[in-house]
Amino acid sequence: MKKIGLIGGITWQSTQLYYQLLNTKVSEELGGQSSCECIIESVNFADISAKQAKSDWQALHAQMTDIAVRLENAGAEVILICANTMHLSVPSIKEKITVPLLHIAEVAGKVVKERGFQKVLLLGTKYTMELDFYKDILKNQFGIEVMVPNTEDREIVHTIIYSELSKGIISNESKQHYLDIIKKSEKDGAEGVILGCTEIPLLIQQDDCDIAVVDTTKEHAYAAVEFAIN
């Protein structure tokens, strides 16, 4: 089994999901008392969030790259960033590491393509929804048409992530806001919704929605296990 290196804490709420999913999947695949071989370096999210708010992406790229290098030096044979937004740093990271990095948008795109969908709603932080780094992979590598909510709804989605989900706060009112936004996308032809923030699965699951849900946290973790054991 290859050792998985995790850049975590972005936020710790979703990182604990990764740890649970990785170990559960390894146990299912290998049986017995098998569990995941992994290394986690977990950051202070207050620091990350402050830099994001200032659009200090260069500092974040340097920070993410330094962590990835430390994980490789500690024996990691594949790297995961436990957050969708910080995949903005992937080009910088790949210049400095020699082990593979599993890109969460590529994992999501593969799942969408396998399910045969052409048009999907992307939910996430405002950075993930508004910048091109994620949407371009879905469009250019997989031919997927990507929708995002309108400006007001993007702000609602983003605020709930940072003010509630990152702190482990689960609100029925916020859940309804998300479901209303997903419903709007259905009317505009969305065949599925990508939960493009690793905290959103804390709030939204497939059973809540009429259209298909792509849980990037789960799919990313499962792809890592497949890589690690095969």
Results as ranks from 00 to 15, higher is better:
residue 2 K to M: 12
residue 3 K to C: 04
residue 4 I to S: 10
residue 6 L to F: 08
residue 7 I to P: 03
residue 12 W to F: 07
residue 14 S to W: 02
residue 16 Q to I: 09
residue 17 L to Y: 01
residue 17 L to W: 05
residue 19 Y to G: 05
residue 19 Y to E: 01
residue 19 Y to R: 01
residue 19 Y to S: 07
residue 24 T to I: 15
residue 24 T to E: 13
residue 25 K to N: 05
residue 25 K to W: 10
residue 26 V to E: 02
residue 26 V to Q: 11
residue 32 G to F: 15
residue 38 C to Q: 15
residue 40 I to G: 10
residue 42 S to F: 07
residue 43 V to F: 05
residue 53 A to C: 12
residue 54 K to R: 09
residue 58 Q to W: 07
residue 58 Q to T: 08
residue 59 A to P: 14
residue 62 A to G: 10
residue 69 V to Y: 13
residue 69 V to H: 11
residue 72 E to P: 02
residue 77 E to P: 13
residue 77 E to W: 13
residue 78 V to R: 12
residue 79 I to Q: 03
residue 81 I to E: 01
residue 83 A to P: 08
residue 83 A to R: 01
residue 87 H to E: 09
residue 88 L to N: 12
residue 92 S to H: 04
residue 92 S to K: 06
residue 93 I to H: 03
residue 96 K to F: 07
residue 99 V to F: 09
residue 102 L to I: 13
residue 104 I to F: 09
residue 107 V to Q: 14
residue 109 G to S: 09
residue 110 K to C: 11
residue 113 K to Q: 08
residue 115 R to F: 12
residue 117 F to M: 15
residue 117 F to I: 11
residue 117 F to V: 10
residue 118 Q to V: 15
residue 119 K to P: 00
residue 120 V to H: 13
residue 120 V to Y: 01
residue 121 L to F: 01
residue 122 L to G: 00
residue 123 L to Y: 03
residue 123 L to E: 06
residue 124 G to V: 03
residue 124 G to D: 00
residue 125 T to H: 00
residue 128 T to P: 01
residue 128 T to W: 05
residue 129 M to G: 04
residue 131 L to C: 05
residue 133 F to D: 02
residue 135 K to M: 14
residue 136 D to A: 12
residue 144 I to F: 11
residue 144 I to P: 02
residue 144 I to D: 01
residue 147 M to S: 03
residue 156 I to T: 11
residue 157 V to N: 11
residue 158 H to F: 03
residue 166 S to P: 08
residue 166 S to F: 06
residue 168 G to W: 11
residue 168 G to E: 07
residue 168 G to P: 12
residue 169 I to T: 13
residue 171 S to C: 14
residue 173 E to Q: 13
residue 174 S to M: 10
residue 176 Q to V: 15
residue 180 D to S: 04
residue 181 I to V: 01
residue 183 K to H: 14
residue 183 K to T: 13
residue 185 S to A: 11
residue 186 E to S: 04
residue 187 K to H: 15
residue 187 K to Y: 10
residue 191 E to M: 08
residue 192 G to V: 05
residue 193 V to Q: 04
residue 193 V to C: 03
residue 198 T to N: 06
residue 199 E to Q: 04
residue 201 P to G: 09
residue 202 L to F: 08
residue 204 I to Q: 14
residue 205 Q to S: 13
residue 206 Q to A: 02
residue 208 D to M: 14
residue 209 C to W: 10
residue 210 D to E: 15
residue 210 D to W: 09
residue 213 V to Y: 08
residue 214 V to T: 08
residue 215 D to F: 08
residue 218 K to F: 01
residue 221 A to R: 04
residue 221 A to S: 09
residue 222 Y to A: 02
residue 222 Y to I: 06
residue 224 A to Q: 01
residue 226 E to R: 14
residue 227 F to S: 12
